[in-house]
């Protein structure tokens, strides 16, 4: 059952644009999917290595700005030199956005993992704040608070075949869904491999992990690079979908949303951020129809507190416990003895 469930869920989501005609709901799902992607990347750090990054939105925003500027072009003067960049296709922006965010993950990882625990949290929060201030004040590049409007939507295709520009919501939905599926598979393969086991080992018992030969910095930095890259890519998708970004993208609330998605869904589980992402991506929109913004926030907060109190490990581990006792035991590592790598 556990093996087919992801496929059934996938089939369901593939069918969504076929029957969901309300464009507003479709829009909600696209944004929800983009944040879900960011939450999945956060889960690598928070869930698998156990490091709480409270500046995760920085990677998301860096991806968004890099991709937006790549596809819009810019002209800035640095130390008297005028640097001009002509617009490139948005797809290149997506690649660059992911790469730059991944590089930031590497640098922050190298820097921040010397300190862990509370200091790590402080370093990541400061990093996000520095990036936000740059986006706010480097007006020549980012337009500052006036935002970067007119970001082109993603275009797929090659010269001889022709292009498909993703103007409509259904097309964007499928692109985001594809990224989620690919990311899910990448994270699953990573976690089921010696790389992921090293990360889990560091989370569970750092002393013992190092004594069997696991390098702390190597694997924490590796997790940070993956987390940064994936969050960066989700940011690029956001920029090209919404088509306008401003420094508010770096607001702390966005990080909090990702953290909530991971923790309520179940940190350190593959499906956790997906489930948490769906609930906290969709709930606000549904609530908005019936209640005012204040009540909405109260309900949103209560829902989170309720979930965390009733199911401290998150929703996914709880469900696994109810439905399959045998498989629940191995939920975190998904490694049953005897289950060869072939399966």
């Amino acid at each position: 059952m556990n093996r087919f469930l992801p496929l059934i869920v996938l089939a369901f989501f593939v069918s969504v644009p076929l029957w969901l005609t309300d464009q507003y709901y479709l829009h909600t799902l696209v944004v929800c999917g983009i944040f879900m992607l960011a939450a999945m990347s956060l889960n690598l750090l928070l869930g698998y290595t156990g490091q709480l990054s409270l500046g995760h939105v920085a990677f998301f925003g860096i991806g968004a700005y890099v991709s937006a500027l790549t596809s819009l072009g810019f002209s800035v003067s640095i130390f008297g030199y005028q640097i001009t960049h002509d617009p490139w296709p948005p797809v290149v922006g997506v690649v660059l956005g992911g790469a730059v965010a991944g590089l930031c993950g590497y640098l922050i990882g190298k820097l921040a993992f010397r300190v862990r625990g509370a200091y790590f949290v402080i370093v990541t929060v400061s990093f996000a704040e520095v990036i936000r201030l740059i986006s706010l004040n480097w007006i020549e590049l980012t337009n500052g608070p006036l935002a970067l409007p007119g970001i082109p939507p993603l275009t797929l295709g090659f010269e001889p075949i022709g292009y498909l520009t993703l103007w409509d919501k259904a097309a964007n939905f499928y692109v985001v869904l594809t990224f989620i599926v690919v990311t899910y598979i990448i994270i699953k393969r990573l976690i089921d491999s010696p790389y992921g086991r090293a990360m889990i080992a560091l989370r569970e018992n750092e002393t013992l992990a190092t004594s069997v030969g696991i390098s702390v910095t190597r694997y924490l930095v590796l997790a940070a690079v993956f987390a940064g890259t994936i969050a960066g890519v989700s940011g690029t998708l956001y920029a090209h979908y919404i088509q306008i970004i401003d420094p508010a993208i770096f607001m702390f609330l966005n990080t909090v949303t990702m953290v909530i998605m991971v923790i309520t869904g179940g940190k350190g589980t593959l499906a956790g951020p997906v489930v948490g992402g769906l609930i906290f991506g969709i709930a606000p929109v549904i609530l908005r129809k019936y209640v005012g913004p204040e009540v909405q926030w109260i309900l949103y907060g209560s829902l989170m507190i309720l979930i965390v109190f009733v199911l401290p490990e998150g929703i996914v581990p709880a469900i696994e416990r109810w439905f399959g006792r045998a498989s629940a035991k191995n939920s975190e590592l998904a490694l049953e003895p005897g289950k060869g790598a072939r399966s």
Partner: peptide, 24 residues
Amino acid sequence: NLFDKISVFENVLIGLHRKTSARL
């Protein structure tokens, strides 16, 4: 000193870290 929360088999798999030839 063990990886308490995970299975005995997984503990040893983690221990074998140095032995793997898997590339990223």
